[in-house]
Design a protein around this nucleic acid. Sequence first.
DNA 1: CCATCTTTGTGCACGCGTTCACAAAGACAT
DNA 2: ATGTCTTTGTGAACGCGTGCACAAAGATGG
Lengths: 257, 257
Amino acid sequence: MATGRTHRPATRSRGIPEATVARLPLYLRALTALSERSVPTVSSEELAAAAGVNSAKLRKDFSYLGSYGTRGVGYDVEYLVYQISRELGLTQDWPVVIVGIGNLGAALANYGGFASRGFRVAALIDADPSMAGKPVAGIPVQHTDDLEKIIDDNGVSIGVIATPAGAAQQVCERLVAAGVTSILNFAPTVLSVPDGVDVRKVDLSIELQILAFHEQRKAGEEAEAQAGAVLEAEAAAAAAKETGKGPDGDVPAVMPA
Amino acid sequence: MATGRTHRPATRSRGIPEATVARLPLYLRALTALSERSVPTVSSEELAAAAGVNSAKLRKDFSYLGSYGTRGVGYDVEYLVYQISRELGLTQDWPVVIVGIGNLGAALANYGGFASRGFRVAALIDADPSMAGKPVAGIPVQHTDDLEKIIDDNGVSIGVIATPAGAAQQVCERLVAAGVTSILNFAPTVLSVPDGVDVRKVDLSIELQILAFHEQRKAGEEAEAQAGAVLEAEAAAAAAKETGKGPDGDVPAVMPA
DNA sequence: CCATCTTTGTGCACGCGTTCACAAAGACAT
DNA sequence: ATGTCTTTGTGAACGCGTGCACAAAGATGG
């Protein structure tokens, strides 16, 4: 359209939408795969397909980073890998501590994707004294008592909480007090943190429940596609109010085929 | 898909926004905690605080389910627990299979939150023949060869993929072909599935990268000079193509950590 | 029964994210 | 050079989700 630059987005690096940031790792992964196959350039259409998004969205996402593409050709894979890496802060090393070395913590410690890109497991921490010294994924587990020192010595700013729910908030507070400002929480609890601390949560139970909701909806649609008795839900709710006592473990007339 | 002809689910659920559905498990957890403390009623304000959301949002969320509150009093805890459980489909039993019993798969199998609410680990499946028969979390691992039969015999409609990335798509296709219509994917891959199949993904690596982005941003703001890890040579190229990095005040004054 | 007080349920406005659609930009062939 | 063809970058419209602010509903006390 207008040849003239109307208004360049004055604030570029700061203005990256959160939704875009969340997709950058996806693009990066797809680009890395292309890079390993020595593909020199890629179009927005191809890359979008690989990342599982819409091409217009991808182009808009990239437009927040700058004009890194070449019209008529596409994007230079290597260059884009570098730009996104830099934007995400992956060109530097991030020491990470994992607190709570149970099944999940051990799984995380062993997770290859950890070390692969900028992240390094600096320490494993557990409250169980009998775990102390025991190596997990080649890293000796240390006791919670030393948490503050570990954080400080290693300059850790990202912490992963894989403890039971009951311990999570307390661990969180100690991490924050020790200087951690980003937390990845696997415990099924709402963490409260001061301003300036980022928390992201990964909750298996919630994901499953969301799936169950859609699963139920699908089953319902399929079963009575044309019934459409909206008011019936009312009656069902009323009737359910009577029968509803132990919403926990009871199984209502399920008969697996 | 084997689970079919149960009873009719609420037809009203069609209008529940996705964002609301994603929060229902959060409310449910908070409500369950209140229920265990025998708290009879709770106000939107209190419950919202417990769930870590805004009270107006909570009320609006509940309004999609119906008018289950009492003005001047609040919500009946037990009743709400039941309503949300029903809405999410947790009053029925959901058999789940976990494919890929490595560190992560084992952690998931052992995860208590699984069985606690509606979900039941029906089977563990792995491609490694030496795993076959070996019990994990009290459940014997079965071989991938029997995947279709396991799905069918147990009426499984929800599958969890915890395999390496390379195997995920293939496993996914077999699950779908066998009748699974909801998939929780822990493998770092974009799964492509036919319409009607829901996929949710949990990706540790992505979460960490998002945290790193914000962490870098915080560090940059705070010290104004923490853009340390920018690679020299390529940074020059980048600066040449782009007119500097932070137009909004974050200057790339390099100061290596 | 009436007044007051608490808390829900929701209309409304706003901002963010998504998507469409297309002009501008460049590559490439002639 | 010039024209054609491909693909980017983005203005604009739209829809969803969020939060405010308040009237309606009901409890509670006198």
